[in-house]
Nucleic acid binder design. Structure first.
Length: 459
RNA sequence: GGCGCGGUGGCAGAGUGGUUAUGCAGCGGACUGCAACUCCGUGUACGCCGGUUCGAUUCCGACCCGCGCCUCCA
C-alpha cells in the first residue's frame, strides 16, 4: 500500500518515498513552554502522532523528534511576570505539556530535544553560515542575509519584494536588508545567555530547529511538520539556515502543515486571546474526546472548535465503545493483515481521518450484527484500525464509568441504588424504580436494563 | 498590494464528471414494565451566474461571501 501526502513545498499530493526506507525521520515543531498549551496547539501533536503510528506500520524504524523551545523572549516575560526563574517556568510548562500529551494519548516521540541543550550546535551553524557568506554581524547581532540565498521564499511561495510590500514591522536599523532575520541576539546581564564569538547572547527562534535536526536526525530528513502558521517565517527561515549551511538544495523532503483550529470562524491563537487550554478542557472532557474531535476533520482543513464539536465526538465514541462493551468476552484477533482495511487505506491517503472514522463506525455496526463466530475478527479489525488513530484503547468499562472531570456520584452509590431499584422491580413497585432511574439520570447516570441485569454509564 | 485557502443536507464532515459517504440530531418501526442500547426503515445537499459536456456539486471563467499568511503564533 502506497502512502501519499500533501507537500507544502510543491503544493500537491505526492507518493511518499523516504531517503532511507530502513530509517524514516520526522521532525515536528513542539511548544514554546511559557504557558499551558491550547487545544489548537494540540492539533499538530495529535495529527503527527497519528502519522507517526501510520509510518511505523510501514517502515522498520521511524525516528520522530518533537522539540521543546525552552528559551524565548515570551518565557523571559512570563518569568518576570510571575517572579520565577526562566528555568522554573520552562520546566513547569514542559511538565504540563508532557502531561497533556499523555492525556491525549500521544506516543512518546523518540527524541525530545530542548533548545537550551543544543546551543553549541546552534553556534556551530551560525559560524558556518558566516563563513559561507550567508550571515553577518551587526551591533551584537548575527543576521541571516536572505538575499544571499537563491530560492528564499520558495517554501511559502512568495518573493522578497512581495513580502516587504505588505510588511507591517519596523525594520531594525542594523539590518542590511529588511527581510534579514536574527540568528543570534545580545542579552543584557540580567537576561539569560551564553558566551559566543559574537558576545554574550541567545539564539534566534528559527535556529534551534535547524541545528537540532542536523544534530539529532541528520542533514536531510523525510518529514517536517507543524501548524500552518509556521510556514512563514519559521519554516522558510529554517529551510534557509539548513540549506545554506550545507550543500543541499533541500533538507526536508516533505513539509506537512495542519490547518487552524478556529473559534467563531477566527483562528484560535494566544495573541488573540480566544483560546481554550487543553488543561481546562480536560476538566470537562476526557482526553480521548478531545483527540477524536481533533481528528474529525482532515488535518489540512480548518476545524471550528465548539462545545457541539466535543459533544458530537463524545457521542460517536460512546457508540463505538458500546459495540466493544457488548463483546467484552470476545478475544479479538489482532493478527489479520491491515492492507485491505478501508480505514487503513484512508489514512494512507494523506491521513484522511474522517473516512477512517467512518470506517470505524462501519466495523462497529458489523460487529453489533455479527454472529459470534465473526466477532473475533471484526473486534480485532476495529481495535487495530482505531489504534492507528490512538482511539478506543480504553476498557469499555472504564470509558463508561469513569467521570471526565469532577467526580459526581460514586460508583458505590450508583450500585446501591441499582440494587434498591432491582428490589423495587421485583416488588412491582415501578414508581420507585422509575424514580431511581430519574434520580440517577439527573446526576448524569444512565441505566440500561437487560436480561443479564442492569448496566450503567455516565453521560 | 502580494500569496493562499474555503463556501456540501438541521449540525459536523468526506467524496465524485453519471450509480450522490459517515456520524450526530430528527421521524417511523422492532425490542423494552418504562427507558436506554441495538437493529430495520427514512433525508437527491453541494454559494451565485455563465461556459465545456449527452450529463457538473465535481472541469473552466466571472462574481458574491468568509478566512489565513506577509509580525510572535500550532
Amino acid at each position: 500500500m502506497a502512502l501519499t501526502l500533501y507537500n507544502t513545498r510543491t503544493r500537491r499530493k505526492e507518493a511518499f518515498q523516504p531517503i532511507n526506507p530502513q530509517r524514516v525521520t520526522m521532525y515536528v515543531c513542539g511548544p514554546t513552554v511559557y504557558n499551558f498549551i491550547h487545544i489548537g496547539n494540540a492539533r499538530p501533536a495529535v495529527v503527527f502522532d497519528t502519522f507517526y503510528r501510520l509510518l511505523k506500520t510501514q517502515y522498520p524504524e521511524v525516528v520522530y523528534a518533537r522539540n521543546i523551545t525552552d528559551i524565548d523572549d515570551k518565557i523571559m516575560k512570563a518569568a518576570k511576570d510571575n517572579q520565577e526563574s526562566i528555568a522554573d517556568v520552562a520546566e513547569r510548562f514542559t511538565q504540563a505539556y508532557l502531561e497533556d500529551m499523555v492525556s491525549l494519548n500521544t506516543l512518546k516521540p523518540d527524541l525530545t530535544p530542548k533548545a537550551t541543550e543544543n546551543v553549541d550546535a546552534m553556534q556551530a551553524m551560525i559560524a558556518t553560515l558566516i563563513e559561507r557568506g550567508h550571515a553577518y554581524e551587526a551591533e551584537g547581532h548575527v543576521l541571516f542575509a536572505v538575499e544571499s540565498m537563491e530560492g528564499y521564499g520558495k517554501l511559502s511561495n512568495r518573493s522578497l519584494e512581495d513580502m516587504l510590500e505588505g510588511a507591517r514591522v519596523e525594520v531594525a536599523p542594523y539590518k542590511r536588508y529588511a527581510g534579514d532575520f536574527v540568528l543570534w541576539k545580545p542579552s543584557s546581564n540580567d537576561e539569560p545567555g551564553w558566551g559566543s564569538p559574537w558576545g554574550y547572547g541567545r539564539p534566534g527562534w528559527h535556529l534551534e530547529c535547524s541545528a537540532m535536526i542536523k544534530a539529532h536526525l541528520g542533514d536531510q530528513i523525510d518529514i517536517h511538520g507543524g501548524g500552518r502558521d509556521l510556514i512563514f517565517p519559521h519554516h522558510e527561515n529554517e529551510r534557509a539556515q539548513s540549506c545554506c549551511s550545507q550543500d543541499s538544495e533541500e533538507f526536508v523532503r516533505y513539509w506537512m502543515h495542519n490547518g487552524y483550529l478556529n473559534i467563531d470562524g477566527e483562528k484560535m491563537s494566544k495573541s488573540l486571546g480566544n483560546f481554550r487550554t487543553v488543561r481546562d478542557l480536560l476538566g470537562q472532557y476526557k482526553g480521548e474526546v478531545l483527540r477524536f474531535a481533533l481528528l474529525s476533520a482532515q488535518y489540512r482543513s480548518e476545524l471550528d472548535f465548539s462545545k457541539a464539536l466535543l459533544d458530537q465526538a463524545k457521542a460517536s465514541l460512546d457508540s463505538l465503545y458500546t459495540a466493544l462493551k457488548d463483546c467484552t468476552d470476545i478475544k479479538p484477533d489482532m493478527t489479520a493483515p491491515m492492507d485491505a482495511q478501508p480505514a487503513y487505506k484512508a489514512l494512507l491517503d494523506d491521513l484522511n481521518t474522517p473516512i477512517a472514522i467512518a470506517e470505524l463506525h462501519q466495523l462497529a455496526k458489523a460487529l453489533n450484527k455479527a454472529d459470534a463466530a465473526d466477532k473475533t475478527a471484526l473486534k480485532g479489525q476495529l481495535l487495530r484500525c482505531a489504534e492507528l488513530m490512538g482511539l478506543l484503547q480504553a476498557e469499555p468499562e472504564s470509558w463508561f464509568k469513569d467521570s471526565a472531570g469532577e467526580a459526581g456520584i460514586s460508583a458505590d452509590e450508583v450500585e446501591a441504588l441499582i440494587a434498591e431499584r432491582q428490589q423495587s422491580k421485583l416488588d412491582k413497585n415501578y414508581a420507585r424504580a422509575d424514580e431511581i432511574r430519574e434520580q440517577l439520570k439527573a446526576q448524569g447516570v444512565v441505566l440500561e436494563d437487560s436480561r443479564e441485569g442492569t448496566q450503567w454509564r455516565r453521560e
